[in-house]
Amino acid sequence: MSDGFATRAIHVGQDPDPGTGSVIVPIYATSTYAQDGVGGLRGGYEYSRTGNPTRTALEECLASLEGGRHARAFASGMAASDVMLRAVVRPGDHIVIPNDAYGGTFRLVDKVLRHWGVEHTPVPLSDVDSVRAALRPNTRVIWCETPTNPLLNIADITALADVAHGAGAKLVVDNTFASPYIQTPLELGADAVLHSTTKYLGGHSDVVGGALVTNDDELAQQIAFLQNSAGGVPGPFDAWLTLRGVKTLALRMEKHSDNAERIVEALLNHPKVEQVFYPGLPTHPGHEVAAKQMRRFGGMVSFTVAGGEQAALEVCSRTRLFTLAESLGGIESLIEHPGRMTHASTAGSLLEVPNDLVRLSVGIEDGADLVADLVQALG
């Protein structure tokens, strides 16, 4: 893995097709594969739920970008999350989750796994002592987001790995907000990395997907078994679209980060903005840790608006270039109200988000245009 990130993003798992010379990995739109005699598999493929060459190319590339030996692609980030937890958690076990976790993760843990006897405790992952205090003898997983969604809190991956492993648990890091270009949790001690590849990896808001990456051979076998058994796999066109997006990830993340920093500066100076959440700010409580484990600070920005929920909703409705929509990580800029949209499932819980919070997914448009759009929306 001596090649640089951008080189690996374009080449790993993506050699020219040996039959035709096609420079781009083909879309293998097939459900089954001819065998040379019973059990005589060509290239190891028998059925596309189990394996597909386009998906294999994506998985090999993602493993390389995260510095892992094994990667598995899924039909969505939540499908990947479900398999990850079922690979290591059994009825009666316990999970530690962030106290500001993504709403979909909280819904899976609280509304689905809880009914199968899996307990969970939300804690601020930036406070290692609180994490340690939340551990139980039956804790199997510390589930980490860093930065978190939508408050952009930062967790020290190396410190959490030490805590998890001291308790005999796994550390799983949702690396969706950062992307492997900005952060590689396996190198910091994580046991597995999760992605919603829908976001920065795909990068064009045109495909839904997920992925798991690990260096743990035993865990990789269990993930592969569940991927095939449960069947939540991406189709070949989805895998191809994601792989196409990955090729420009390095370029896009630099522009996302540049634009986000420009927007943060404008928000800090605006009288109608009460607080800005961005790990690149020296005043951010996790800035020192973020600077240590992240290459850049990413394209996600959140802020609170003077005037409460109604004022936040009005800002979301007045933008011209920022599209009011859920999701994130695409080339276009998005704005949303987490309390009413992506994090509505946390209402009334310990994970409920502030009702005056606005979340931005900063795209790669001209930065000056984006700043002007926000200023007029706030005005």
Rank of each mutant, 00 (worst) to 15 (best):
T148S: 15
P122D: 11
P124S: 12
I142N: 01
I142H: 04
H115L: 13
P124K: 08
D127Y: 10
I154E: 06
T121R: 11
T139Y: 01
V128N: 09
N149P: 01
R140Y: 01
N153A: 05
L151E: 02
V118E: 10
A133K: 14
R136S: 02
L135W: 03
R136L: 06
A159D: 10
D129G: 11
W143T: 01
V123W: 01
V123Q: 13
I142S: 03
N153C: 03
P124D: 15
W116Y: 13
I154Q: 05
N149Y: 15
P147M: 03
V128T: 15
P124H: 13
D127W: 08
P122N: 10
S126P: 06
T146R: 03
L125S: 14
R114M: 07
G117E: 13
A133V: 08
L151D: 00
N138A: 12
R132N: 14
H120C: 08
G117Q: 12
L152R: 12
H115I: 05
C144T: 09
C144Q: 02
S126F: 04
P150L: 08
L135V: 08
W116M: 11
C144P: 00
L125I: 14
D156V: 00
T146P: 02
D127C: 09
L113N: 09
L151Y: 00
N149S: 12
L113E: 12
P137W: 05
S130K: 13
C144I: 05
P137N: 02
V123Y: 01
W116T: 12
H120Y: 14
W116Q: 13
A133D: 15
V123D: 10
L113I: 11
V141Y: 11
R136P: 00
G117I: 14
A155Y: 06
V123A: 12
V128S: 12
H120F: 14
P147H: 07
E119H: 12
L151A: 00
N153F: 00
H115V: 06
D129C: 07
D129L: 14
